[in-house]
Amino acid sequence: MIEHIELFFKSIFIDNMVFAVFLGMCSYLAVSKKVSTAVGLGAAVIFVLAVTVPLNWLLDQYLLQPGALVWLGPEYADYDLGFLSFIMFIATIATMVQLVEIVVEKFSPSLYNSLGIFLPLIAVNCAILGGSLFMQAREIETLGLALNYGVSSGIGWFLAILAIAAIREKIRYSNVPPALRGLGITFIITGLMGIGFLSFGGMLTGGDDESESSTELSAEKANTIQIEDNKELANNTKIIE
């Protein structure tokens, strides 16, 4: 149970899809001009992630991992179909988005109309494929955790786009320099929000086991803590390489 809660908060705040790993930036920048459309897209992203990440987990578990084909027979234990991951994941995502679109259109026409063009566009949103690829790279262990990861990553993305949309609505009447208006200031504000979210980095490290995943991000976080110590910094730059 505790690992579910940990994964939930970690995916929303520490490994936030927008601020930590920059997934889904294109639609994030394009759709964040109004809060109402941002909310619609965010909800759609949560929904699609919740559906595709567990499904891709099943695919990964029983088809793509090294030795995953054992259930067909012991002679298949050596097969490693990992190189097919990309094409299988994107095929699942495209199919599921199409299915979700059909189901939503049938059962809730009003929701379908409000989502509009966003639903089909989500299929090529890098946040969705990124969610599945990170799920695979981080070797999430159970189906329940995969569902948890999908939903919480979506919520993290939703929070980010909601925040930037609200800010962009407010700064429409501010004196932004002409060359920075629109795209430029959005980038800078997103960067500042990212810096703010870095402060969540210490949230889950007060516990007993140091089972932090050894991603590049963790190595970089360790850098800033030891920034005064030149020797540590030089060592850590070697870790990044």
């Binding site: 601020f19 790993v21 800078i188 997103t190 990212g194 870095l198």
Partner: peptide
Amino acid sequence: MPPMALIIVGLLI
């Protein structure tokens, strides 16, 4: 750290 990339691109724009 990731946020600085955003700010650098903002400055480039």
